[in-house]
Nucleic acid binder design. Sequence first.
DNA 1: CCCTGGTCCCAACTT
DNA 2: GGGACCAGGG
Length: 843
Amino acid sequence: MSFLSQLNPRQREAVETVEGPLLILAGAGSGKTRVITYRIAHLIENLGVMPESILAMTFTNKAALEMVERVDKLVGGLSIAKPLISTFHSFCVRVLRRDIEALRIPSSIPGRPPIGITKQFVIYDEADQQQTVKGVMRRLGIDDKQTTPRSVAARISWAKNHMLDPQEVYLQSADPKTERVAQIYAEYKKELAKANALDFDDLLLEAVRLLKAVPTVRDYYTRRYEYILVDEYQDTNRPQYELMRLLAGSRHNVCAVGDEDQSIYSWRGADIRNILEFENDFPEAKIVRLEENYRSTQNILQAASAVVANNRKRKGKTLWTARQGGTKVGYYEAPDGENEALFAADYVSRYLREAADQGENARAAVLYRTNAQSRLFEEAMRRYQLKYSVVGGFSFYERAEIKDMISYLKVIHNPDDSTALLRVINTPVRGIGKTTVDTLEHLALETGSSLWGAVGEAIRRQLLPPRALAAVKSFKTLIDDARVMLAGTYAQRLEETSAEGATEAPAAVIVDDQIAFDPTALEAEDGGQATPVEAGRLHDSRPEAGATTAALLKFLIDRTGYIKQLEEEDTPEAYSRIENLRELVNAAMDSRDRGETLDQFLDHAALVSETDSYDERAQLTLMTLHAAKGLEFSLVFLCGLEEGLFPHSRTFLEPDDIEEERRLCYVGMTRAMDTLVLTRAVYRRRYGTDLPEASVPSRFLEEVPAELVDELGTSRRRASRTRASAPGARSHYAYEDEDQSAVWRVRTPQQSSRYSGPKYNSIQNVAEFFASRGKKFDLAKFKPEEPTGKMGFRPGQKVRHPKYGEGTVFQREGEGEEAKITVQFPRFGLKKLVEKYAQLEKA
DNA sequence: CCCTGGTCCCAACTT
DNA sequence: GGGACCAGGG
């Protein structure tokens, strides 16, 4: 009971109202997470509710994780059973992995397996969705310049978030474009079904469909979860809302926590009506308002409230704080983006230093509207030698090399995943080009099979030219081998779990591309070619059967020569990619330590976002406003307050969208505990190359009452201050010079000989480099050696080409037959030729 | 028929 | 800064 005394009366009411529907309207900083976690603790500790009958759903893994930790702290060690605290999407995956096959319908052909998604479904991310849409559009012959796959995918997602199927989209369409979207949508659905795949939106939709359609399944979950909590309720979309209703069953023990002023996800289908109309759906609902803000000073809170007060669509509430006064809201107008970032770096570094001097552990954040803005800030922070962590931007799992390996795993797990297969069939290049892939796609279409089916078919019927056929065969062998390894894992697990030891581990066999665990399956199939699992049978680099995901990854990296190829590239980028791959193997090992199987590992990879990598201990964090939701910092920099950037230009047309931008601004401002600084760049470069454009101050700036604002000086004053406080940071123009010299530093002669790759093969670069050092680029330095036979041409040598005539060898890369030679031809300029093919002769 | 390199176009937020 | 696409070369 003791912890309840730490709550104010309103919070306590929210915590102690445990029966029946409850809506908690929790203003920013009003102790929302605290209420949720205390409520869970109260249920378990004071009311003796079984932890496993409590379900809490959040939007981000980050929020879920934080809640788990805080609940653990309150009731830790009480029991082994824990409440389920998870994101909507993870929860749905859990439900679907257990029960989705209840939705399958019997095949009309006797003896055939039922139709529908199986438990082994794969999850398509946004990139997979776009790829699939693109493929569908190509097949339908729809021009992808006018209607981009990207926009179509977005519209399909929109439809799904509003629970519209293709027919409904078609019926509601008022223009040919929407009709086409409906048509693509229908095909897209078929494509996913064929691949046994669900996209992010499907995870919610299918879970809802399952609970609606199958009473036994629904009963299982409603009986199991007696207490349901929904966090960030203002951001729930239709499917999430339905899910909540279904899970609440007739008990209606549902507690939703939200703040309509912080609804920032309408573009993802969040329906603000869910919160505004909660009372209609649950007439017996109790509503508790939390209006005391424990986070910010009065100045900050007043400024933020003044901004959001300009919105029409809100319930309206009055937040108050006991922290009277406080520092005024800072405003700084930078001449350009670079300067804005440097100002932030300068300010933050002094702020953190002063806090450290006083023994305080202050934390700061730089918040921006778009991820693209992060680069300038990162550069500035590095220049000030400030340690920072960036949330978002390019996610680890979005890196090309990681996606490649994940796609391999997906194919191994489910070869019918054509999108994944397409990604890796020629990665790294193994001689399966566009034409071959086209042939395979046609074949798949003809036979109604997946791409993987077409691979087998093409090999069986020898439908490809010899070279391509060999390449396709080697690819198939690779996947088959890996699948046998995986089957070994299953076999081993079966062995481990069968307590009686009497049965031997079932041999895994491949029968017509299907992995079967029961050897008798061999007899059942007529004439299917079987490959028994037998050590050493398949390939030399095959580790023994019983492989973990990590072993599988190592095998793939080894057999495909992926890392080897990167090593040969020998560039810093290549080594960073290798590092990433190592990190992936580590992630796989962690996954094994958690007791996960391959499919669980893939689920994890599909559902984590970079937001989850937020490091609480970092003193300085850079992230988007969206990612900052739910967090708090002593110092907040809110940057890029310019019309077109924030509010974003895409929101200008719809008044509702502008209101959402304003809520976003409110969210950002209310993250600040002690100090809030708003900045704007007078000139901003929008796309790197273009000239900087003059900006108009954001309308949100004008909405902050002037008496709460402290102007932090002009850019001229700042420039001198920066000069004084940051050694080596004279002005941002000086930085550009420094950058130049840094670039040149990389190109020292020693380095360039190490990196013989394409990066430094431009003759102009080399010549310029020498010129910049006041040296002449002297060809004579490269002493030509007498070539043996026709091969081995050296720089400076005269050669003859059948097409280009006579020329002078300029540069040589690599040795032997693979050597590439750059030749200067008087009439054709520089040409890079492969010695083996170029038919060069000594002139 | 495949691969490489250069060019063009794009860039909002996230599960 | 990055990815998609195309032309040119073997």
